[in-house]
């Protein structure tokens, strides 16, 4: 039976960039184990010869002509930003202390 440990949930949360609290880790780990156990029931249902479906439609790439069409103005594109500077998104520092 698959089980996710508290440490594993903490690692996954780190990968997903969410700072979970200790309480959240405590209740998420058992809940996720129950869900995983249930979804693991599909292992072995499909043989190796079954092709995977990623999409309901038989899609090929859709291209358009490379022409300029109306789009958002810089003001519109920046309108929802938490912080703006010189017509750009202003973000926290992206490098660590050691870098």
């Amino acid at each position: 039976m698959p089980e996710i440990s508290r440490d594993e949930v903490a690692h996954l949360a780190d990968l997903a960039r969410i700072d979970l609290t200790a309480e959240e880790l405590d209740h998420l780990a058992p809940q996720l184990s129950v869900i995983l156990e249930s979804v693991a029931s599909i292992s072995g249902v499909a043989g190796a010869d079954v092709p995977p479906t990623s999409h309901a439609l038989p899609l090929t790439n859709v291209f358009r002509d490379d022409v300029v069409t109306p789009s958002l103005t810089p003001e519109q594109a920046l309108s929802g930003a938490p912080e703006v500077e010189s017509q750009r998104f202003s973000v926290p520092r992206i490098l660590g202390d050691e870098q």
């Binding site: 594993e8 996954l12 959240e24």
Partner: peptide
């Protein structure tokens, strides 16, 4: 931000999907 901004169910599914 994601800790403060997302609710329980969203966190559950993001972690499950990441797994």
């Amino acid at each position: 931000t994601r800790e403060a901004g997302f609710g329980d169910e969203v966190k559950r599914r993001i972690i499950l999907g990441t797994y």
